[in-house]
Design a protein around this nucleic acid. Structure first.
Length: 435
RNA sequence: GUGGAUGUAGCUCAGUGGUAGAGUCCCGGAUUGUGGCUCCGGUGGUCGUGGGUUCGAUCCCCAUCAUCCACCCCA
């Protein structure tokens, strides 16, 4: 620990520690997700966080921002170019193909885990962030589009977020229709070069559809007169989109059609959607996805229709926190804090704690450790947020009892025989069951 | 990647060109076996980091790192 060697090592920029005070919120969210996926008949898939660089370049699109400047790419010791995954879909397709999951069968998969993008960090935008994603394969009708949207909607309902999010919907048409429209749009923009700002000129080659979404008021007039994607949909995509809207109407899910909604990743076609919120500043997209019918084939598999979405866990947890939607009983804590009143009761307390844990498997009991004055032991009992403290001292040891003290309500403490303690706690604490 | 704001105790923040303070937290005491309220005392800081100007820099200048905001992009 010399001064010269004192350069502090800290976490990588944009990569955060998840501290004990945060994890209950994450666990609450993750628990809801897991339960929901189970209820909808989706199976979990876990893939490595590192893949061959080519996988992402070929799926996300060579000229997207993600591939051009945001990937964590490095050479393995044998010279292979590897990349920390910037999103989950490509890995999922790769794994499904590699293990024959797409061979004459349909799949409904979900995953969860860290993703990596080298962007400038901001609230709700990090270099290591976490997504929950859903991917379905082998369904070409709008029913599966509706199904995954309904799944996401139910999650918002269960989390109490429904009135804080908006569903935006669009159709990009088939890959062919989209490409044709893209050419037409580029031609139109090239005729109006003089009105385009710098960003838009750059996007002319990278993602011309996004220019439509520009906030620059000087371009508004020109953009309004631009060819509309909706007018260039192929008939099949138009029908698909109409049916999807009818299904959402029938399910009572409100949405707004946003003809300027364009996803940044190249593989999307037909249905695209985003759930957005105004409560998080400029990082308003909380969940986004769509159809990517061409990707499996593009990666060397048989043509396979696919629909999926991903949501950002940091953003959703942040939203839950901001809106105070995590119930208090999910925020950790324990039921009972067991206090040996002085060091002579340590061993007895240890044994009593184990005995109670055996008798009451759902009991959350924290044993006081680390000594200290009796006063400080009681302070820690208070801080534990437990409703009940068990005190064990000289008198209790002498007559095989324990003192039950109620920390949260005005109620006389009571002496209970140690043999009857489990039964008493079971009666006292509604969430604790005996076995 | 571009523009801007901010970095002082574990946390929230004052403050001054002469090597730092409050609240909170933590520990102890008032109260020998009873926490929360009150009162008293105590621990805790290379003032983000590295240079420069100066007799002297936490303060002024430069660089750098980090966080936040907007843009870009996206979950």
């Amino acid at each position: 620990m010399s001064k010269s060697a004192a350069k502090k090592i800290q976490a990588i920029r944009g990569m955060n520690d998840l501290l004990p005070s945060d994890s209950p919120r994450w666990q609450f969210f993750e628990g809801k997700v897991r339960q929901l996926m189970h209820r909808y008949g989706f199976d979990e898939i876990r893939t490595p966080i590192v893949e061959q660089t080519a996988l992402f370049a070929r799926s996300i699109g060579e000229v997207t921002d993600i591939v051009e400047k945001e990937m964590y790419t490095f050479d393995d010791r044998n010279g292979d170019s590897l990349t920390l995954r910037p999103e989950g879909t490509a890995s999922c397709v790769r794994a499904a193909m590699e293990h024959g999951l797409l061979h004459n069968q349909t799949q409904r998969l979900w995953y969860q885990g860290p993703m990596f993008r080298h962007e400038r960090p901001q609230k709700g935008r990090y270099r290591q962030f976490h997504q929950v994603g859903v991917e379905t394969y082998g369904f070409d009708g709008p029913d599966i589009d509706a199904e995954v949207i309904l799944l996401s909607a139910r999650l918002w309902q269960e989390l109490g977020l429904m009135e804080h999010v908006t569903l935006e919907l669009n159709s990009l048409g088939s890959a062919e229709a989209r490409a044709a429209y893209r050419d037409k749009l580029v031609a139109y923009f090239e005729q109006h070069q003089d009105v385009l700002d710098e960003d838009s000129k750059r996007r002319l080659t990278s993602n011309p559809l996004r220019i439509l979404d520009s906030k620059n008021p000087d371009m508004a007039e020109m953009l309004n007169a631009a060819p509309q994607l909706m007018d260039h949909l192929d008939d099949e995509s138009r029908a698909h989109f109409e049916q999807l809207k009818a299904m959402l109407d029938a399910a009572g899910i409100p949405y707004v059609v946003n003809p300027r909604l364009v996803r940044g990743l190249d593989y999307y076609c037909r249905t695209v959607f985003e759930w957005t919120t105004t409560a998080l500043g400029s990082q308003g997209t909380v969940c986004a996805g769509g159809r990517y019918d061409g990707l499996v084939e593009q990666l060397g598999g048989k043509p396979t229709p696919a629909v999926g979405f991903a949501m950002g866990i940091e953003r959703l947890v942040l939203l839950l926190e901001t809106l105070n939607l995590v119930p208090a009983d999910a925020m950790g804590g324990c039921d009972v804090y067991l206090v040996p009143m002085d060091d002579s009761a340590t061993v007895a307390a240890l044994m009593l704690a184990e005995q109670l844990r055996s008798a009451l498997p759902s009991l959350r009991l924290q044993l006081h450790c680390g000594g200290g004055s009796f006063k400080s032991r009681m302070k820690k009992a208070d801080k534990s947020a437990a409703p009940v403290a068990i005190l064990l001292g000289e008198d209790e040891l002498a007559n095989q009892t324990a003192t039950l003290k109620f920390l949260r309500d005005d109620r006389e403490q009571q002496q209970v025989a140690q043999a009857a303690l489990a039964e008493t706690l079971h009666e006292l604490l509604p969430n604790v069951s005996s076995h």
